[in-house]
């Protein structure tokens, strides 16, 4: 999910704590800040800290002046060979190619296990919105190939696309049968997206709160942090990549439920909007003597169901007879792209 969805989910979870509402009514915003910050914290840790310290074995760095798909294919094959020969985990960085303040040379890397080869093609130039620049689609028609020493097993069916900002990292993990398991963004959700890490963080900051304000504040801080950090992990399990849920007790990422792509517009919006409605409802419950009275159902009808139906109806009307194609995000790298595009 997008960062803002995680953030608002965290704020919503925090609002379920009556202490958060009471503190807010006294002018203390700490629980809501903690909720939002912890909601987005796992991705912050990964994308703004950890990835810059993640060592790679092979850096594939195409030349912007002379993009050579064969170079990319050869380097990719060399990384595969390294993993096979040395029987170890090999980390490969596919570096992006920047051509302008708003322009990036896109290239794709596709693995064909039947032919046991990798195919690389440089595609169009795209802008930061990942929209292709007209007239650049056929700049580099050549598809370069290189033989692979082993099969590379992907859990999704997509080409690796490299375009805006930072290029992706992939990891080759040797399997018992000699094949390599391809892990996309191995540094992402390696340990940060874990319920236990959230609990540990809650304990640490709870200890600080205990020292500063006493036991009550301490457990309230712990519960807020653990719950809001945890909701991020839960939400990410709805996607494809999954998370290493109980690190350090578990070693690998548990694949997600594949219910959504992290960049899908509707689930993201619903997550944000429903979080807002929950927050509103919890705040309303905390009003000492409300002038207006309404039920949760009433709130949901007025705030979500009726406007949603109207919007859906209008959309149906406006797209009648049209074949509206929503751009489908790639399973593997859409979260990576969504995070970058949001910056």
């Amino acid at each position: 999910m997008k960062g803002f969805s995680h953030f608002m989910s965290g704020v919503a979870v925090a609002s379920f704590g009556p202490w958060a509402i009471e503190a807010a009514q006294q002018g203390n915003p700490i629980f809501f800040i903690l909720g939002g910050a912890c909601g987005i914290l796992p991705d912050t840790i990964d994308f703004k800290f950890y990835r810059f310290f993640y060592e790679h074995d092979v850096y594939i760095t195409p030349d912007p002046l002379n993009p050579d798909p064969q170079y990319v294919a050869n380097e990719f094959a060399r990384a595969v060979a390294l993993a096979v020969d040395e029987k170890r985990y090999v980390r490969v960085k596919l570096v992006s190619v920047r051509l302008g303040a708003d322009f990036w040379q896109q290239y794709s890397v596709k693995i064909d296990n039947e032919k046991l080869e990798v195919q690389v093609k440089f595609g169009p130039v795209v802008n930061t919105g990942q929209v292709p620049v007209k007239g650049t689609e056929d700049r580099y028609p050549t598809v370069a190939t290189a033989k692979l020493k082993a099969k590379v097993i992907q859990t999704y069916d997509a080409a690796l696309k490299v375009d805006i900002f930072d290029g992706p990292t992939i990891g080759f993990k040797p399997m018992d049968n000699g094949d390599l398991d391809l892990e996309f963004l191995p540094w992402h959700r390696e340990w940060s997206h874990s319920l236990t890490v959230g609990a540990i963080l809650g304990v640490l900051l709870g200890a600080v709160a205990w020292w500063a304000s006493g036991w009550t504040m301490a457990w309230q801080v712990f519960v807020t942090i653990a719950a809001c950090y945890g909701v991020h992990v839960v939400e990410d399990q709805l996607g494809h990549m999954g998370s290493n849920i109980f690190y350090p007790l578990t070693k690998n990422r548990t694949p997600g439920l594949h219910w959504m792509h992290s960049g899908d517009g509707l689930p993201n919006f619903l997550a944000v909007w429903i979080s807002c409605l929950f927050i509103f409802w919890n705040l309303y419950r905390g009003v000492p003597k409300p002038t207006y009275h309404f039920s949760f159902i009433h709130l949901m009808m007025v705030g979500l169901v009726i406007p949603g139906l109207i919007f859906w109806g209008l959309r149906k009307l406006l797209t009648l007879g049209q074949n509206v194609q929503m751009k489908k995000g790639d399973d593997a790298d859409d979260e990576w792209n969504e995070s970058k595009a949001a910056g």
Binding site: P67, L99, G100, F103, V125, Y140, P141, T142
Partner: peptide, 9 residues
């Protein structure tokens, strides 16, 4: 590889 590269917008 194409050498016919126009300037980007």
């Amino acid at each position: 590889m194409s050498n016919d590269k126009q300037a980007l917008p």
